[in-house]
Design a protein around this nucleic acid. Structure first.
Lengths: 335, 335
DNA sequence: CTGAAAGCGCTAACAG
DNA sequence: CTGTTAGCGCTTTCAG
């Protein structure tokens, strides 16, 4: 591994017969304002081209106190939604010469704090977090150093900038549709209620019942955490209560749905009379014997919106609107 | 956003009443070799603690010509396997004070080249690539600047370091099991044959047939690309050829399987007599009416192995073994 | 229009 | 054992 040392600004300057600053100005598009002659400009650019010169990002960062990086903290990269957003964000960043730094918190508050601190040490210019915290104090403090934006999840009633999906209305719509064919029963399986998305989904569920003129029975609502086996257990509980599968069910996440489906499979109930809808959309839902309506987050818009927000904040622009609730997309399969 | 400017080494030194180098040495664990007195050491560390001082990574990078970052280029972050590996790698890196920079190539050679160049500009210390290239020349050149490691995919017969899954043997085992109950037919649906994983899976399929003493019929093998609708189309073709579903089928990826399942669903064939096995494991396979054996990559081991390799190369150690073919795990559901 | 020079914050010789 | 000093490569005044 030969350490072919990179060529520097100084060397380029010498080869082009000008001074370092001239090269620097040209490279940073300041030739205009400084009225650098077209000939020098061309000559310099040729040399730059010839030697395939690339400025050192570290030297620049040191100088400018910017790192040209953006931190993204999400609970889990293997979660399809977060992965999609990460992927889109990475593309946006790259196109602007920024670098996205991705870290996972695994939904642990302690780990989240740790990875954020790591990113801050790296001097990220901005931070985007899908947080598992229940108090935004930690992030509010950070705000003195860099812009912080909440993604997908709101910490309490934090007024920090936020971009997330309108889970409530989509859920309501899906749930009331579930009930349209005169069903008189609809269960809700959810995860940790502390998380803002959970709250919104539950709220939407209740709204949906209301819209269908159905009075909620307390035992219809079950929740534990977003794990497959929790879905399985809730289904088992439900069966015990009813002696049969519920006529309608809304699962607050795909992973819970998996648990439910596994239960049904294990008990030969895949062809029973049950209507299901779920939050999260996966292609596999097109392949199941049960027709399951689903709610898809618009990851492209989420990523785009959050990115624009980041850019604006980095440019120090005054932000008027800081909270964005984006509509979800409903994938109807039952009709 | 107040730019609370960070405290510097120099200030710490002044506050502790010592010189910059003393602080630097202490912070870099060189107190031993330089026999710095325990008292100064303690005093300095106290000041560091008090002001919560963190060295500037950029200044250090500029100086040391290392960026303390590792680049990871994968085709797609929303692919569960790659996401898992990325997640694990990120953890390993973070624990060592490195930062993982993730970028997606979307399986485009042009884009891959671009993102790699971006990462190289960022002066990543090492590069891990799940490449879509068919020629390793580009990477061999890079080798002069930094260590490059192939992950999951081998470019041609490239002798660059490689960590991947033993798809061949796992596939053979699964295929021969499919055929165990005296089936006389087994189709193979695959993706782009240029990609090394595809080759290995096909090879394994053939080996599996052989082990089951079945003679391959050319029309059993179909391939296009790794997209759901390709799986759908191959299945349609197959139906046309046979007038019925094949008795056995191996899909070379989960995404192709999805297409197949969608076809079966659309044509009310989910309960027909078909045996399927697939590469890639997903939990949802536990929930389907068809019992599908699957092959799971051991992402944890892949990540760990590739990380150890990276570390060794970064330490400039002589690497004796550079090609690692890790066993896959088979998830039996049919028995 | 262009060049000289002063840092950005840190490391590592080299002197004491 | 500790301090001085010279850069790392780039940006940016401030003088020509």
């Amino acid at each position: 591994m030969k350490e072919k040392k990179r060529i520097t600004l100084a060397e380029i300057a010498k080869k082009a017969g000008v001074s370092k600053s001239t090269v620097s100005f040209i490279l940073n598009g300041k030739s205009e304002s400084l009225r650098i002659s077209e000939t020098t400009r061309k000559r310099v650019l040729e040399v730059v081209e010839e030697y395939n010169y690339r400025p050192s990002i570290h030297a620049r960062s040191l100088q400018s106190k910017r790192s040209y990086t953006v931190g993204l903290v999400i609970p889990d990269l293997t979660n399809f939604g977060f992965a999609s957003i990460a992927k889109e964000l990475e593309k946006h960043c790259r196109e602007d010469g920024l670098q996205l730094l991705i870290a996972c918190s695994e939904d642990s508050q302690a780990l989240e704090k740790k990875v954020v601190e790591h990113l801050v040490e790296r001097q990220v210019d901005a931070l985007i977090v899908g947080s598992a915290m229940i108090d935004d104090q930690f992030y509010v403090k950070l705000t003195h150093q860099l812009p912080v934006i909440q993604l997908d999840r709101q910490i309490g009633n934090s007024i920090l900038p936020l971009v997330c999906t309108d889970a409530c209305n989509a859920t309501a719509k899906v749930v009331s549709q579930l009930l349209s064919s005169d069903n008189q029963e609809c269960y809700f399986f959810g995860g940790q209620l502390e998380l803002s998305p959970s709250k919104q989904r539950l709220k939407g569920y209740k709204l949906g019942l209301q819209q269908a003129n159905l009075v909620l029975k307390p035992n219809w609502i079950k929740h534990a955490d977003y794990q497959s086996h929790s879905g399985y257990k809730m289904m088992a509980e439900c069966m015990k209560e009813l002696g049969r599968p519920p006529s309608c069910l809304f699962t607050a996440s795909y992973i819970l749905l998996e648990g439910v489906l596994r239960y049904l499979r294990d008990h030969q109930l895949l062809n029973c009379d049950i209507r299901i809808a779920t939050f999260d959309d996966y292609h596999i839902l097109d392949c199941l014997p049960i027709e399951i309506d689903s709610i898809a987050q618009d990851c492209t818009s989420l990523a785009q919106t959050v990115y624009i927000l980041v850019k604006n904040m980095l440019n120090g622009e005054e932000i008027s609107k800081t909270q964005y609730i984006l509509p979800a997309k409903i994938c109807w399969r039952s009709r």
